[in-house]
Simulated scan of single mutants.
Amino acid sequence: MQGCENPQIDPLPRRALQVCYRAGAASALLAEPGTLALLGFGVSTPASTDPRCLQVALETFDAPAPLELWQVNAPVSCGRDGALCWSAGGGWLFAAIELDEREHGGPTATARLAYEQLHRFVAMREARHVLRVWNYLGAINHGEGDAERYKHFCDGRAAGMGDFFAEGFPAATAIGHHGDGRRLQVYLLASDQPGMRVENPRQVSAWRYPRQYGRTPPSFARAMLLPAQDVLAISGTAAVVGHASAHQDDLNAQLEETLLNLEALLASAGMATGFDGQSPLKIYVRHGADAARVRAFVQRRLPGVPTLLLHGDICRRELLVEIDGWRYA
């Protein structure tokens, strides 16, 4: 097992994880006190053997691409357990796993294995309350009906989670990357204290979707208030009203509907409206040709908000854009 120990820092009152986008060398950011995780995007991200550093398979439209930095007010330890990488400190846990479907029997079996291994590992930790999960898989929309790869992923995830989320589903994102089509990446944030799940009154809860969306409904909450209730972790949010996709083929209308859903989540969480410079968002864009229009929309409607534009396929092929991220109180 490979491990690391982050430098000691002065103890501060417990507060939520701090997430931001930063430029700079990965080695320098990893050396900063309290670094829990560092996420790079696309093949241009330098490889690192540090277990806290994950090269996410999604390419970015931003150049130069910033890194996503997670920090806590505590010393951090980290290591590897087979295919699983982890880091922990201050009551927080980051865990990530990457698997090749060709080695594990296809998308369903691979998703099942990923969630079984994450479940087994997290269950042994003090920080066992899973708050937020990200899932990135190749060719997410390939296949028709129940044969679609996303639906296979949902089947496998449900089979592998067991009682992983017995206290309720975490916030989550599932996006298709354009890299190796058989590469599955799953990473999560857990805590030694539970969060509070938040649903959107404009939408049917994902686990209650009707059969038309697959044998196994998606398993996630729309958002999660972290334990101190001063940060909202927002799931992948798109132009869905009730359970139906809205505004097919209309990018601007989908963006507007997505913002309405984000505001509904803030209201449900008891937070003030709007986003600010301390609330980083990821914006997943299906078609590269739409990136400039999405960027212009964001600059107009979310001025000053840190955003990262990523090339990714939404789990429903008719949806053109999805947004997730963090809202600090």
Rank of each mutant, 00 (worst) to 15 (best):
S245H: 08
Q248G: 04
P306R: 01
S279V: 06
T258N: 05
L266E: 08
L319N: 04
E318C: 14
Q254Y: 08
V305E: 02
K282R: 12
R317T: 12
T258L: 01
L265P: 03
L259T: 10
S245K: 06
T273Y: 08
E257Y: 02
L265E: 01
H287Q: 15
V294Q: 04
P306G: 00
L302T: 00
L251E: 10
L259I: 13
V305T: 07
R295P: 00
P303C: 03
A253T: 05
V240Y: 01
L310F: 08
D249A: 15
G288H: 12
M271H: 06
D313I: 10
V240H: 01
S279C: 07
S279K: 02
D249G: 11
H243I: 09
G304V: 07
Y284Q: 14
H311Y: 11
Q278G: 04
T273A: 15
R295I: 04
T258G: 01
Q254T: 10
H287I: 08
G274V: 05
N261K: 06
D249S: 15
N252R: 13
V285N: 05
R301N: 12
L262W: 05
L319D: 04
S268Q: 10
V240C: 12
Y284E: 13
H287M: 15
V298G: 00
Q248T: 09
D276P: 00
Q248I: 05
G242A: 13
A253I: 00
L259C: 11
R317H: 13
R316M: 14
D250P: 06
E257M: 11
M271F: 15
L302M: 00
R293K: 10
V298C: 08
D276N: 10
A289W: 08
P303Y: 05
A289L: 11
G270Y: 13
A272W: 06
